[in-house]
Design a protein around this nucleic acid. Structure first.
Lengths: 219, 219
DNA sequence: TAGATTGTTAATCGATTAACAATC
DNA sequence: TAGATTGTTAATCGATTAACAATC
């Protein structure tokens, strides 16, 4: 047991990419990869790959590279994917349902096991093998299955209440899609996914682009 | 016309939050807000708010604060939201449909106007007022409507082909949900949204948490 | 041994935070 | 005028990149 206690957030965000890259290499039957190989596949400088991987554990061999199997296992452990992690989604609208059915999580051994909604019409429906439960069942189900991961896809005004209920039930990491700043107790990890804000950033790039074009015309 | 030519990426990511915050303040009838007010609402230090807003334009008044209407208009221009921006989604699976129907974009004047899919069974279906078109119609539609924003929600193996088609058709900013490193020509803005990778990061935090707990027990 | 490639140190770069003169 | 709050400068912090000794 020597998982590192602290990894910088930017590095952390890249670890899943390394994991997927190594997984792919393993499927192709490769036994060893270099930081150069990984960097090329992901569009990152080799030095950054080495630096990032040094946080995971000392696994490469100078002159040789990284053993695919070994590094994969380390990344798996570092990302907490050794035991399958289960998550719940609160808010069974289109987005919540899309996440519940999203096939991409499986590559990391992540699984959404239940949806919750307050709309009586939705209760009992199945989405990709996942049942929609009433909100009242949340605490019981979370505790019974020892769920630690919660995803919020309710409208903004309901999000804080849902977050509170999740924390109360024992969830320690929340992925929030509602465009609102939530308050959670110390020790609960919160990640915000603001889809509209992301799209607005792309809109800015387009605006800047036309601005630059105009400028060069007038220059 | 004095839109700033360059804004750091972290700042850029916060601008939409300021926009939403100011929009809210305007709806509440507030005429002036301070960097302190904004910071409190968003959980950011006031100094950072001021620094960020200084990239947008010089708009605050010392001793007073920021005029809500004026700052809102500046942010709108900076984010390119003065003229309504339209986007297309390629990949009419659950995720693509959820995005097409997502109500949150409207707050920024962003709108998804068409879905594309290669599945003949889906062609012609409506999703939240948005028609699903065959892929062959993409170039024509993009050019006719002068669409500059494309969203990719197809499986990873198809993503590069879709990106190429988008660029060919004239799209200059791509939001890619497929978990794969795409190649686009210089000048085309690419933002990756890797949902599974995001969830994996949360999984790591949980793992670290239990590691920390175990450690403190043994300490 | 020579060539390859690591892990790490040091240099660079960029973002955040603190402090404060300017000004309403 | 006194109090409030900006915009900006300088200090701090943290991440990326480059370089290279260690080593397979």
């Amino acid at each position: 047991m020597d998982a590192k206690p602290y990894i910088p957030r930017p590095t952390l965000g890249r670890l899943p990419l390394y994991y997927r890259c190594l997984d792919e290499a393993a499927r192709l039957g490769r036994e060893v990869v270099s930081s150069e190989d990984i960097g090329r596949a992901l569009g990152l400088p080799a030095a950054q790959v080495r630096k990032d991987l040094s946080y995971v554990r000392d696994l490469g061999r100078p002159g040789i590279g990284y053993q695919v199997r070994v590094l994969l296992a380390s990344l798996k452990q570092c990302l907490g994917l050794t035991s399958d992690k289960e998550a719940i989604v609160v808010g069974a609208g289109r987005l919540g349902q899309a996440l519940a059915a999203y096939p991409g999580f499986a590559a990391y051994g992540l699984r959404i096991v239940a949806l919750f909604d307050h709309d009586p019409a939705k209760i009992g429906q199945q989405v990709a093998g996942c049942t929609i439960h009433p909100l009242a069942d949340l605490p019981g189900l979370v505790q019974r299955l020892h769920i630690e991961l919660g995803i919020i896809t309710v409208p903004a005004p309901a999000a804080q209440t849902v977050a509170d209920a999740m924390v109360e039930a024992g969830i320690v990491a929340i992925w929030n899609f509602a465009p609102v700043a939530l308050t959670v107790p110390e020790g609960v990890q919160l990640e915000n996914e603001d889809l509209a804000a992301r799209l607005a950033v792309l809109s800015h790039y387009i605006a800047r682009r036309s601005f630059a074009r105009e400028n060069s015309r007038n220059a």
